[in-house]
Nucleic acid binder design. Structure first.
Lengths: 197, 197
DNA sequence: TCTTGACTACACCGCCCTGTGTAATTACCT
DNA sequence: AGGTAATTACACAGGGCGGTGTAGTCAAGA
C-alpha cells in the first residue's frame, strides 16, 4: 500500500504535533458531521494513520471529544479598537463564518445536544464558553460606559446565539444584519438612558 | 409475563389511536434523550408493545422521526388578547417550559444538529417551524402597527431562539427576563419611530 | 367451533461502533 | 550489526442498532 505515512510523520513530528494533527482532523469532522456521527476510524483515515496509532495519542474517544472542546475554548481578546466596533464586529464575524460555508452552528451547543447529560465535562465546557463570551461583551460594554452592562451583555449573548441557531436552521446569513441592528439599538438605548441620569 | 398488553390495547384502540400512543412515547424519548440515542426497542418497551407491533404502525424509524417532527409542527394561534401581551407571552411560555424541568432546547434545532444534512425532510420541517413562528410574530406586530414589522419579527425570533439555546446550555431560565425585556424594548422603539413620522 | 387477524416472544441478520491483541515492518540509535 | 520504539495491517471481542422471519397465543366474529 501507499501507507506507512504515519511512520514517516512520527519521525518528523513531536508528540504534541501529532496530537494537534489528530485533533485538527477530529475538529473538522466532529464539527461538520457531528460527534456521534464520526467514528475513530474515520479520523484516523483522514490523516493517514492507523486507528491503533491514534489510540497511542488519545486513550479514548471521550478524551478526544474533551480535547476537541477544549481546543474550541479560545480566550476572547479585547483590542484597543472602539468597544462598539468590537461588539458589533462579533456579528460580522458570524456573518463571515456562515458565508465560509463550513457553518454548522455552535460547536458547544451541538455537543450538549448530541451528548446529553451523560457527559458533564462537555456541559461544563459549554457553560464556560458561553459565560466567557458574555463577560467579553460585559467588559466592552463597561468600557462604553453603559448602564446595567451585565444584563445588556446577557441580551447581546442571546442575540448572537439566536442568530447562530437561526443561521443553522435556515442555512444562510440573511438574519445577521437584523441581529446586529437589534444589538446596536439595545446598546444605543442603554447609553441614552445613562446620559439622561 | 405480564405482557399481552398490546393485544388488549389493540382491541380497544383504533389504528390512529395506536399510532398516536406510539408517537407520544417517541416524542417524549426523542426530545428528552435525542433521536439518535433512542432505539426502536426502547420506544416499544416504553408503551409495553413488541418491536414487531411497532413496525406494523410505522414502517421505519425514519417514518417515526418524520411523524415526531410533524406532530411538533403545531399551528400558532392568534387570540384576541392584546398583541403585545401575546408576543411577550411567548417568552413567559419559554420560562414555564424551562421551569417544567423537561426542557431540552428546541426539538427542531436539535433534530437538524443530530441528523445533519442526510435528512432533508427534517430540515424542511425545521425551517417551516421557524418561519411559522416568525410570521406569527409579524402578524401580531402588524396589528400593533409598528414600522418594519418583518425585520422586527426576525429579531424577536432570534431573541427567542437565543434564549432557548442559552437555557439549554445553562440549564436554567435566568435569562428569559432579559430576553423578554430586550424584545419589549425593540418593540417600543419601533412604535416610537412610527409615531414620530 | 372454527377461522381470521393482530400481537408476542425470540432469534437472527447485517452493519457500525469503541477498543484491544498480535505479529510484522520500519527507522533510528548505540 | 543489533536492539528499540513506533507504526502498520488485520482480526476480533463486545455491544448496540434497524429491521425481518417465525412459530405460537389470544380474542373476536361467523
Amino acid at each position: 500500500m501507499n501507507a506507512q505515512i504515519g511512520v514517516i510523520m512520527s519521525r518528523w513530528l513531536s508528540t504534541e504535533e501529532m496530537q494537534e494533527r489528530i485533533l485538527e482532523a477530529a475538529d473538522r469532522l466532529f464539527y461538520r458531521q457531528g460527534i456521534r456521527a464520526v467514528g475513530v476510524d474515520t479520523i484516523a483515515d483522514e490523516i493517514g494513520i492507523s486507528k491503533r496509532t491514534l489510540y497511542n495519542y488519545y486513550p479514548s474517544k471521550d478524551a478526544l471529544i474533551a480535547a476537541y472542546m477544549s481546543r474550541r475554548l479560545v480566550t476572547l481578546e479585547i483590542t484597543d479598537r472602539p468597544p462598539l466596533d468590537q461588539i458589533l464586529g462579533a456579528f460580522d464575524g458570524l456573518d463571515r463564518s456562515i458565508a465560509a460555508k463550513r457553518f454548522r452552528g455552535c460547536a458547544f451547543v451541538n455537543a450538549v445536544t448530541e451528548l446529553g447529560e451523560g457527559t458533564p465535562e462537555a456541559h461544563k465546557l459549554a457553560i464556560t464558553f458561553k459565560e466567557n463570551r458574555r463577560l467579553w461583551f460585559r467588559e466592552l460594554l463597561s468600557r462604553l460606559g453603559v448602564e446595567d452592562e451585565d444584563r445588556l451583555a446577557t441580551q447581546l449573548a442571546i442575540l448572537l446565539d439566536g442568530a447562530i441557531a437561526t443561521a443553522l436552521v435556515r442555512g444562510n446569513s440573511a438574519m445577521t444584519g437584523a441581529a446586529k441592528e437589534a444589538a446596536a439599538l439595545l446598546i444605543v438605548s442603554a447609553t441614552k438612558k445613562k446620559r439622561k441620569r
